[in-house]
Design a binder for these strands. Structure first.
Lengths: 204, 204
DNA sequence: ATATATTCGTACCACTAGGTACGATAAATT
DNA sequence: AATTTATCGTACCTAGTGGTACGAATATAT
C-alpha cells in the first residue's frame, strides 16, 4: 500500500465522503428496504446534493450496488467464516442457526435477501450482483454439505444440491421472519425444526 | 333470494360493474404484486374513470381489500377444504404440498402472501383483513395438527402451535418461491423435505 | 316540461420519484 | 493575476402517484 500517493489534481477538491455515503445507504436500504428509501432521502441523510451522488455513483443503481458490495464484505463474509469454521457438522449447522435466527445484526433482516425479493425493481447492476452473490452462497452451502457427506457426518438420500437449496431457503425464511418482526425465539424454533432434517435420521 | 327486487331509484343508472372491477384488481394485484399496480392502471384496464373507482371503493385501500376478500373466497377457501378433507394425515399433508407447490393456480404466487409481505405499505383496511386471514389460517393449521395428534397420526415432541407456525412458514416459502419463478419440481422437493419432519420420526 | 337525484368522466390538485442544466466555487497551472 | 480544471449545489425537468372539484349526462318524480 503506497499510502494515498498525493494525486493532487487540479480542480476543486472533492468534499464528498464516498465511504460515508455508502455506509449510510447500506444501513438505510437494510432497515427500510430498497423500496423504502429514495435518493432524495439518502442525500438529505448524508447532507449532500443529488448531483454529487449522481456524479459519484451514476445513479440509484450504482449506489445500491455499492451498498450491497459493502454489505457483502461486512456481513455476508461472516457466513462463509461459519461454514468453514471449526467444529463438527452439527455444531456448525447450529452456529448458522444461531447467527441467522438470533444475532442482533439481523434484527432488521438481511439486505441481500431484501434485494433478492425485490429483484425486478432494482437496476441492472444491482441485480447482477444479487445473482452473483446468490450463486456464491449456493456453492458455499453445497461445498459445506458435500464435505459433511464425504466425512460421513450427513447420511441420507437427500442430494447435496437439494440440501443446498434447502439451506438457502430456510435461512432466507428465517431472515424474512426477523425482518417482519417475528420474535427471535419463534424464528429459532422454526429454523431448528427445519434443520432437524439434517440430523434426525441418524440420531433417533 | 328475492331476485334483484327492483330498487329502481332515481338518478343516472350506474354502469360500473363492481364484480368485474374487483376481479380485474384481484388478478392484477395477484400477478404484479400490490406495488406493481396503480389505481390509474387499474382504471385503464377496466375502462372506467378514477372518480368512479373512488365512489365505489373509497380509495385504493378499499379496492385492495375487496380484491383480497374475493381472493380469500375463491382461492384460500380451497385450503381449508383440503385440511378438512378425506384421507389420512399424511395424505392430506401431501395434498397440501401438491396444491401449494404444483397447482397452476399459484403459478404467479399467492395474493395473500404478497400482501402480507408488503404489510406496511397497504392501507389500514387491507392490513386488518390480512391479519384476520393470517389468524384464521394459523388456527386452521393448528386444528389440523391437533386432530392428527389426537388421532395418533402425529407423534413427537413438537408442540401444535409450533407445528402450525411451521406449516404457515413452509407453505409461504413455497408460494414465494413460485412467485419468484422457481421451477415447480424444485419447490416441491424443498417443501417435501421440510414437511418430512412430520412423518420421518415414526416411519423409519 | 321542470325539478330532483344519482352517476358519469374531464381536468385538475399536491406530492414524490429519479435525473439533469448550469452557474458558482475552489483548487492547480500558467 | 488570469486561465484551466474539477467539484459544488440551486433550481429545474418529466413522469407517475393517490385523490378530488365540478359540470355534463341520465334516470325518476312532480
Amino acid at each position: 500500500m503506497q499510502d494515498d500517493e498525493a494525486p493532487r489534481r487540479r480542480g476543486r477538491p472533492k468534499s464528498l465522503d464516498r465511504e460515508r455515503l455508502v455506509d449510510i445507504a447500506m444501513r438505510a436500504y437494510w432497515e427500510a428496504g430498497p423500496q423504502g428509501v429514495s435518493v432524495n432521502a439518502l442525500c438529505q441523510m448524508a447532507g449532500i446534493s443529488k448531483p454529487s451522488l449522481y456524479r459519484e455513483f451514476g445513479g440509484e443503481d450504482g449506489l445500491m450496488r455499492a451498498a450491497l458490495e459493502a454489505y457483502a464484505a461486512s456481513v455476508l463474509d461472516r457466513v462463509v467464516g461459519l461454514l468453514d469454521g471449526p467444529g463438527s457438522f452439527a455444531e456448525r449447522l447450529d452456529a448458522m442457526a444461531s447467527f441467522f435466527a438470533e444475532d442482533p445484526v439481523f434484527a432488521h433482516g438481511c439486505l441481500f435477501t431484501k434485494l433478492r425479493a425485490a429483484k425486478p425493481l432494482a437496476g441492472d447492476d444491482t441485480r447482477a450482483l444479487v445473482v452473483a452473490i446468490e450463486a456464491d452462497t449456493r456453492a458455499a452451502f453445497a461445498a459445506f454439505l458435500q464435505s459433511a457427506r464425504d466425512g460421513g457426518d450427513w447420511a441420507g438420500c437427500v442430494p447435496v444440491a437439494l440440501g443446498a437449496r434447502y439451506l438457502d431457503a430456510q435461512f432466507g425464511l428465517a431472515l424474512a421472519s426477523r425482518a417482519a418482526g417475528v420474535p427471535v425465539a419463534e424464528v429459532r424454533a422454526v429454523l431448528d425444526l427445519a434443520l432437524s432434517v439434517f440430523v434426525a435420521r441418524a440420531a433417533s
